[in-house]
Design a protein around this nucleic acid. Structure first.
Length: 514
RNA sequence: GUCAGAGUAGCUCAGCUGGUUAGAGCACAGGAUUCAUAACCCUGAGGUCGGGAGUUCAAGUCUCCCCUCUGACACCA
């Protein structure tokens, strides 16, 4: 049974922003961790390409919707590849296979008696593209967001009978392992407790969408279509589009990682749709927080959006991944502060970890013939650093499995700090000046190098690039099939040649603001 | 408005079921050191724990009131 995880399918209304990059980086770290520790993983990402908003954006750009989607989707794909995202599937909802899947799914939902036609009536805001819920002033209501009058609409739509799943969904969201982080459970529970209403799954006035079988002029409402993209992605393994195959293809998902804004769709509507279609439910939905910048919401109006492409070019993937994963409690909102970004990257990666490797490798080479020093039993698993490494490994395993990237990063850092401390305590540079101390110095340097190797290995899911640079300089590369055993103390071979050290992590020097 | 959550060192945050002098990281100051990417290591300063009242032998931790901020309140990805 593979570990299946998903990012949201990003809406291609606009180019990728930092928010979607953040989600994707976090998922990538999780996917890499699961691959290294368990093996089989299906990491899904992709794009959601239908809907009126996209249609209009395309029109404004004087492109066909398909051309627009092709362009933006390519941009996502390209950006993910430059960030080194390790997704197994990249699904597009304009893929013909997706249409097949949606039709199959819809047929099942229909067979369950969960599709009814009804009237969607109410006050509609064109700007929001949504019906407003019973505006207080009955006669001339206006949209509180757009300050424009609402239009009265009355149209025939298909509805999904969500109300039939009231009890089942209540039970689902009451569980403590389904919605994470815990801080977001209550609002979903409250929402469900207020009573679930049927929701419309088709539109009659949107041409850029998938046609609803048997209902001319209807297209599927984007949400119905988009969530199903997860299933399409799973079946995109070379085999036919057939819902029956899902169980062998990695469904149900182990976790859907999403932004907190779409938690409800994933924790309430989506499970009900799956129940209706007779499919198992995802095991977990994790709604992470949003990023602000220097305390302010990022937005076009403020002109303070942080462009992921720029960030990548100027700072590199390691730096950004580290900052986002190490400084923000995954689940909470986070604030991107340039000064702190630079401080943390330089302190943690360049100074604490990078310099640790650099100084230790230099000493080893200088006094032990360019190689890993010999060692005695004094450096077995009872050594203080061996214990520290053990602790770090255990903490990282536990933290990564539960998406606590910050805790994982801190555990790795602790090990590097302990190793630096050990060097300062034992001061090999001064002992080498005394006669007869080679053996002790060899042991100390071996222990520190070994701790550094484990630091490098532990960083593999979080910062794959830096990790491989570290391991390369220790001449003990990652073996992706035996990560866990490589993590045991003592894996470093004495006498193994060490290459000339050069800094594995450059300090960030940002002259001008990002 | 209703509901939920949050207000703890300059900044970002830990502080579980109430119990010795309130913690960490960054920033700041001082010291030590020279193997190293002016890096590393040690020490220090810095908080009336939003405000007020109450319960208790004892409250950042419980109760009430007030102030401020954030989020949710159905079909915006």
């Amino acid at each position: 049974m593979p570990y299946t995880l998903t990012t949201p399918l990003y809406y291609v209304n606009d180019r990728p922003h930092l928010g979607s990059t953040y989600t994707t980086l976090a998922c990538d770290a999780l996917a890499r961790f699961q691959r290294l520790s368990n093996g089989s993983v299906v990491f899904i990402t992709g794009v959601d390409e239908h809907g009126q908003k996209i249609q209009r954006t395309a029109e404004a750009r004087q492109l066909s919707p398909q051309q627009h989607c092709d362009a933006i989707s390519a941009r996502y794909r390209d950006l993910w590849s430059r960030w080194g995202i390790s997704q197994d599937r990249f699904v597009r909802t304009t893929d013909p296979r997706h249409l097949q899947l949606v039709d199959q799914f819809f047929a099942r939902v229909q067979a369950s008696g969960d599709v009814i036609s009804g009237r969607q009536t109410g006050w509609y805001c064109v700007g929001c593209e949504e019906y407003k819920d019973d505006p207080a002033e009955a006669k001339d209501p206006s949209c509180p967001i757009h300050q424009k009058p609402l239009e009265w609409r009355d149209e025939e739509n298909l509805f999904f009978r969500l109300s039939r799943y009231q009890a089942a969904i209540e039970e689902l969201v009451a569980r403590d392992d389904f919605i994470e982080p815990a801080s977001r459970r209550q609002e979903v529970r409250n929402f469900v407790a207020r009573g679930l209403r049927d929701f419309s799954i088709s539109r009659v006035n949107v041409s850029w969408g998938l046609p609803v079988p048997g209902h001319n002029g209807h297209t599927f409402y984007v949400w119905f279509d988009a969530l199903l993209g997860y299933l399409t992605a799973l079946l995109d393994d070379g085999g036919p589009v057939d819902l029956e195959r899902l169980a062998q293809s990695g469904w149900p998902a182990s976790v859907h990682v999403i932004g907190k804004d779409i938690l409800r769709f994933h924790a309430v509507f989506w499970p009900a749709m799956l129940m209706s279609a007779g499919l198992p439910l995802p095991k977990k939905v994790f709604g992470h927080g949003f990023l602000t910048r220097e305390g302010q919401k990022m937005g076009k109006s403020l002109g303070n959006v942080l462009d992921p492409e720029l960030l990548l070019e100027r700072c590199g993937a390691d730096a950004v991944r580290w900052y986002l994963l190490r400084d923000i409690q995954f689940g909470d909102d986070g604030d991107f502060q340039q000064q702190r970004f630079v401080d943390l990257v330089n302190n943690d990666l360049a100074n604490t970890i990078g310099n640790l490797l650099n100084r230790t490798s230099s000493m080893a080479r200088k006094w032990f013939e360019d190689a890993v020093p010999p060692h005695t039993e004094a450096v077995d698993t009872t050594h203080a650093l061996a214990k520290a490494a053990d602790t770090a490994v255990a903490l990282v395993m536990d933290a990564m499995a539960s998406l606590k990237f910050k805790s994982a990063a801190e555990a790795v850092l602790q090990l590097a700090i302990a190793a630096n401390g050990h060097l300062n305590d034992t001061a090999p540079w001064s002992r080498m000046k005394q006669p007869g101390q080679e053996q002790e110095v060899g042991n100390d340097l071996y222990a520190v190098l070994e701790a550094t190797r484990i630091v490098g290995l532990l960083l593999a899911p979080l910062l794959p690039d830096l990790s491989s640079r570290i391991l390369e300089q220790l001449a003990h590369p990652l073996d992706a099939t035996s990560w866990r055993s490589q993590l045991s103390w003592g894996g470093l071979s004495s006498g193994h040649a060490l290459p000339t050290p050069s800094p594995v992590m450059q300090r960030l020097e940002l002259e001008e603001p990002l």
